[in-house]
Amino acid sequence: MNILLVLIPISVLIAGFFVALFILSSRDGQYDDLETPAFRMLSDDKPFEKTIEKATAKPIQQSIFQAISQENETQYKKVDSGEKS
C-alpha cells in the first residue's frame, strides 16, 4: 500500500486549503450579511407590468419604484457599515 505515502500528504494539503479558505473568508467579513438575500428573493418576481404601463403614461410611478429600491439599498448599506464599525 505504497500509495498511502502519496495519498495522506495530498489529503492533508487539500483539507488544509479548505480550512484556510474558510478562515480567510470569515476574517474578510464575507459572512457579514446573511439576512437580506433571503428577503430579497421574495420580492423580485412581482410583475411590474402594470407599474410599467402606468409609468409610461405617468413618469411619477417609475420614480416611486426607484425610490423604493433606493431606500432598500441605503438600508442595506446601513446594516453593512453598522456591523463593520
Partner: peptide, 11 residues
C-alpha cells in the same frame, strides 16, 4: 460597483 464589497459578497 463592487469596489467596496469584500469577501463572500465579492466571491
Amino acid at each position: 460597483e463592487g469596489g467596496h464589497e469584500k469577501g463572500h459578497r465579492k466571491l
